[in-house]
Computed example of a mutant assay.
Amino acid sequence: MPTLAPEGTLATQPIGDLVTEAGATITDATIAYQRWGEFRGEPDGNNNVLVIEHALTGDTDVADWWGPLIGPGLALDTDRWCVISTNVIGGCQGSTGPSSPHPDGRPWGSRFPAISIRDQVTAEKLLLDALGLTRVHAILGGSMGGARVLEWSLMYPEQLASACVIAVSARASAWQIGIQSAQISAIERDPAWHGGDYHGTGQAPTAGLAAARRIAHLTYRGEQEIDERFGTTPQTGENPLGRYRDPNQRFAVESYLDHQGRKLVERFDAGSYVVLTDSLNRHDIGRGRGGLNKALASITVPTMIVGVDTDILYPYHQQEHLSRNIGTLLGIAKLVSPIGHDAFLAEFRQMDRILRRFLDLSQTTSDEDAGDYMI
């Protein structure tokens, strides 16, 4: 039987040395995770484990960012399912990343290697192996989490019975690389960046990280939603139409983006933001596999695709491309929302229906190969 942390508790699991796709080594790596619901079934066969993959600046606490979807009787019914969520390698919420201690005792900082989505999945496989799980019922994730789900399906198809890929593409587009590189540049141009070795200096590139978040947040939300909420309204008590430009006299949307930047600075490490954003730039499931369509066609894991009709960052046509070419398609679902990319983190009623449908379909598919254990 697998050895799992107490329900809801943030736990860390050593996974040993991780050798990256590019040949670097992360020594004595650790992955953080949380678990909800009791394990049932066989650790190397049919069981009730759902692995949830978080987005770029997310964390293991699914009960926080997907709260209305996880719990007894909800879409991710913890009376039925054992939900496990990991913190990605390179992150800053318990897993080894740039702010973590290097084996020499100092922070990794600039010595932390570049990682790919495939490296993230390799680390998660090492985690599941360490926990005693060699197969799970499903892996689900959105945005960067969805990219990891795709790579899971290609790298270790024998270890998952089904997959749900939300709001992501088969590879990074040039536009995505461009907008994400601009965010990285904002951080690296902050004088407090110190080449990535700011940990322990008493300084941090908070201005750069906040600027990166302001850029990113505009790609996470829909143009229609932002305009309807703010338009050209000045921030209360401020006048952005004065004789000279004054950064303290803002439009309401500027104040909103400043707020988003401050919130991220309070909870996230700039080094992790750079490493993980760079991993999204490297996302390409066709690399070394004969191209995108050949790679997609080779996916044998039954997969549900989900997209958002107003997504600027990962437009819906990219999910349509996935659905047309993936080898074993369970179905495609569209979130209809003015919110944009973040709709999968906000439109809970629609996500509830989609996740219930996915789990119903995945159960039907897995029943065909089920042994003694039935969920």
Score class of each variant (00 low, 15 high):
A5H: 06
E7D: 06
P14M: 00
A22Y: 03
G23A: 13
G23T: 05
T27H: 15
I31P: 01
I31G: 01
I31W: 03
Y33C: 06
Y33W: 11
Q34M: 15
R35W: 09
W36S: 10
V49A: 02
H54M: 13
L56Y: 03
A63W: 02
W65P: 07
W65T: 04
W66D: 06
W66V: 11
P68M: 09
I70T: 00
L74R: 13
L74C: 14
A75H: 00
T78H: 03
D79R: 13
T86K: 10
V88Q: 12
V88Y: 00
G91R: 07
G91D: 03
S95I: 02
H102Q: 10
P103S: 06
R106H: 07
P107K: 06
R111A: 14
F112M: 10
A114F: 10
I115R: 07
S116R: 07
I117H: 02
V121S: 00
E124T: 08
K125E: 11
L126P: 01
L127I: 05
L131G: 00
L131P: 05
H137N: 10
L140A: 13
S143T: 01
M144F: 07
A147R: 10
W152M: 04
S153R: 07
L154V: 01
P157S: 02
E158C: 13
Q159H: 09
C164S: 13
C164E: 06
C164I: 10
I166K: 07
A170K: 02
I177T: 10
I179L: 09
S181N: 14
A182M: 11
I187G: 00
R189T: 11
D190M: 04
G196F: 03
Y198E: 00
Y198Q: 11
G200F: 08
G200C: 03
T201D: 09
Q203P: 11
T206Q: 13
A207P: 00
G208H: 03
G208W: 00
R213I: 06
Y220I: 04
Y220S: 04
G222Q: 05
I226Y: 00
P234V: 03
P234C: 02
Q235N: 12
G237M: 10
G242A: 13
N248F: 12
Y256L: 10
L257K: 08
L257E: 04
Q260W: 09
R262P: 07
K263R: 15
Y273S: 04
L276K: 06
T277I: 08
D278C: 05
D278S: 14
S279R: 06
S279P: 05
R282Y: 09
G286C: 11
R287K: 12
G288N: 07
G288R: 05
G291Y: 08
L292S: 05
A295E: 05
L296H: 04
P302I: 01
T303V: 13
T303D: 05
M304Q: 14
V306P: 06
V306Y: 04
G307I: 11
D311V: 06
I312V: 15
L313Q: 12
Y316E: 08
H317W: 13
Q319C: 11
Q319W: 04
H321A: 13
H321S: 11
H321T: 15
S323T: 03
R324H: 12
G331F: 00
I332V: 13
P338N: 05
I339F: 13
H341T: 10
D342S: 04
A346G: 14
R349C: 09
M351K: 10
M351L: 12
I354N: 05
R357Y: 14
R357S: 15
L359I: 11
L361T: 10
D367W: 01
E368K: 15
I375Y: 12
